[in-house]
Design a protein around this nucleic acid. Sequence first.
DNA 1: TAGATTGTTAATCGATTAACAATC
DNA 2: TAGATTGTTAATCGATTAACAATC
Lengths: 212, 212
Amino acid sequence: MAERLISNAVIKRMPRYYRYLGDLLANDTERISSSELSKIMNVTASQIRQDLNNFGGFGQQGYGYNVKYLYDEIGKILGLDKTHNIIIIGAGNLGQALTNYVRFEKRGFVVVGLFDVNPRLSGISVRNIQIRMLDELEDFVANNKVDIAAFTMPKEKANDIADRVVNCGIKAIWNFANLELDLPEDVIVENVHLSDSLMQLSYRITKQKESE
Amino acid sequence: MAERLISNAVIKRMPRYYRYLGDLLANDTERISSSELSKIMNVTASQIRQDLNNFGGFGQQGYGYNVKYLYDEIGKILGLDKTHNIIIIGAGNLGQALTNYVRFEKRGFVVVGLFDVNPRLSGISVRNIQIRMLDELEDFVANNKVDIAAFTMPKEKANDIADRVVNCGIKAIWNFANLELDLPEDVIVENVHLSDSLMQLSYRITKQKESE
DNA sequence: TAGATTGTTAATCGATTAACAATC
DNA sequence: TAGATTGTTAATCGATTAACAATC
């Protein structure tokens, strides 16, 4: 496959395209032009065509895009045609919420393990996944295919655990801990900083009030 | 206050500055130059100075920035010096997780209400906040100051509830439902699309595997 | 074929970086 | 004062939009 470097701006938009195409598919829409889609999604048609052409020509002149085909292709681009096994480290509220977020499985994401350090949680199950003690981590990863580690533990513990996770050979972290992990560059980290998001909301509220 | 339009790219970086400055403050660092900070944060010094100067001159030539002062000023820019009352709609796992996310309170975010439609949850309390039935929403908002509604209900219900929330006069939504809300433009919506985030992670994993 | 719409090149716009005069 | 470092202007880079030839 051609080693084109695709900008982050483009990649961020792909799941959104996927979502809208999924909706169109659910409505039995067979085909759509970039200009129709641009109206629905509130972006320019030009951007849609540019974005898609980073990955190949999925459309047809005079016709537009076949919704089902494009949906599937974007799914492949995003790796949704493969299964991703996830362990969740930190079985507090957020960890349990993620574990329960069943829908993720629809897209090939499967929670295979749930870890915590609190002995009180030992043996308890969340959605049929028993909570394991963190000291079993290395054994578990050695015996199970794990693609992603989700970090829902307190941030104080995150860097130590990150080292252990990386030593086990896990190459991708979905990080909810409110800090930046310091890791080798071949480890992929996707951050979800809820507190940053809330601050951005707060900024916009404040700005709106000022302008009144 | 001068009505400068500040780009989204800048606003997104502000919470990150705030976080790093908070860490420096915790380490009793009194002052820092843009170039020192740029090394820690892995951005250019130029960008730091440009970003900050959108909001005013917080530094001093030949000295740099006073950490405590800059931290406080960014806090004010982000509206963290004010209290924000939040209601959470959808008392499932994610709603409860957010409710329990005590730390938010440190920054002036207070969960004042928790709603659901499931009668089984009626009367149950999460962190001393009782779960109310959704039909009490309008009454509750009329009698309590509510700044933000967090959406943690299933996406099918999100748009209807959004209309009700907006009719109550709430002007800001923190949206975890995996769809885009269709609302008047004076309503601020901050989206947290966990599934998009996971797909981006999946993309990067896939790409890395291809290049091996 | 004629009309429609893509894929792609060129033009524009905005964001980032570099440079440096101002000044503490 | 001399050195350091900001605030800000100018240059560069990258992303978005416009335009249009290719083609279904």
